[in-house]
């Protein structure tokens, strides 16, 4: 059980998984082909931010409630962003019959 026992209650574990989520999200933002794939990656990225905030607030902060409130704000704003993103994706699909980000090059310089 050795390694399992040091995992919970160790800030380094939370920070590591948060950075892993952030890196995965960034990778997806750069390499997915469609808008929905981008949105999924963006959600992962924001989850990494949220976990990081909660971990630091819980282990290092003096005001534990503040970390929870700010995480709640991040959750709310991310939900609003997802709603808007999906609206735009549907509108783009109606107008261009595609959501492939390589074909959406109307504004390309």
């Amino acid at each position: 059980m050795g390694i399992f026992e040091i995992l919970p209650g160790n800030i380094a574990v939370y920070v590591t998984i948060a950075h892993l989520l952030f890196g995965l999200g960034l990778f997806g933002m750069l390499f997915r082909r469609t808008l929905i794939g981008l949105l999924i990656s963006l959600e992962l990225l924001l989850q990494g931010v949220g976990v990081n905030l909660m971990a630091f607030g819980t282990f290092l902060g003096h005001d534990h409630i503040a970390a929870r409130v700010i995480t709640l704000f991040v959750l709310g704003i991310a939900a609003a962003e997802a709603a808007l993103f999906l609206g735009i994706a549907v509108a783009v699909f109606r107008n261009y019959q595609t959501v492939s980000i390589d074909k959406l090059s109307e504004l390309k310089g």
Binding site: L26, L30, F31, R32, I36, E43, A89, V99, D102
Partner: peptide, 29 residues
Amino acid sequence: VAIAFGLSLTRKAGEEGLKPLTPIALIPV
């Protein structure tokens, strides 16, 4: 649920998957 609906409304065959890897892939690592 919203993403599931967005996915089903904008899905088109042959446009999914990942772009070929380039040196940019180093950034997220």
